[in-house]
Amino acid sequence: MPAGRLVGFVGRNGAGKTTAMRIALGVLQPDAGEVRWKGERVGALGRRRFGYMPEERGLYPRMRVLEQLVYLGRLHGMRPADARERAADLLQRLRVEAALTDRVESLSLGNQQRVQMAAALIHSPDVLILDEPFSGLDPTGVDVLARVLRGEAAQRGVPVVFSSHQLDLVERLCDGVILIERGRVVADGTIAALRASRSRNMLRIDTDGAADGWWEAVPGVDLEERVAGGVVLALTEAADPQRVLDVARAQGDVTRFGAVQKSLGELFREFVEDGAGE
């Protein structure tokens, strides 16, 4: 787990994201394998240095916010005064400082979620594992949460892993992704590397006056799809984009030329389809 980075943990429903996170936190026992952090097996004490936000939110509904955060902090081994100070600071950063003495059940769901995030962060964890932290939040809530997560990652170098079905969000926030399917990691790396490994370079070229099939003259180039006004071409490693451009210009006027990036959503679908086909 790289320090100070945000990693998206994606996969289909039922692929094993929540189970993997629960095992990492010691909530569930693995059938096989073990949880390692910095090369060492993680025991109960090590787990107390993890921060966790479960998919099914959970706080004592009738306990007051500050009291509850201090209690959770103490379970993680904090001293009461430190826990109180940290809780107040987190609630302020999460913009729910007004809720300090409210009972959790009296808060809106969005604010409960922010308190839940504070609960995951209370003990300044070395690793953050968050199960669907953004689901159900309005855009403002997403921004507030994202800023806090980035802050933790940047200032304290905490690696953050979060699962999400909102792939555009993962793409926007994360440095890397881990994709799992049926309990197995099928991809792990930066989004750019993932793109490179999965799909050949894509070029979108719109031409004016070029004959259909002009690209067939260039070695290592295949038609990916026809789009309005032009084509998307898939290039093998060997193919040179500049050569493609030269050929196109020889055929007619090039009105548009650029690399096409697949969205994480498209990559995700490709992986899942591959997985399903195995």
Partner: peptide, 8 residues
């Protein structure tokens, strides 16, 4: 909340 408790 038990899930959070069990993580500590």
């Amino acid at each position: 909340v038990v899930e959070i408790l069990l993580s500590t």
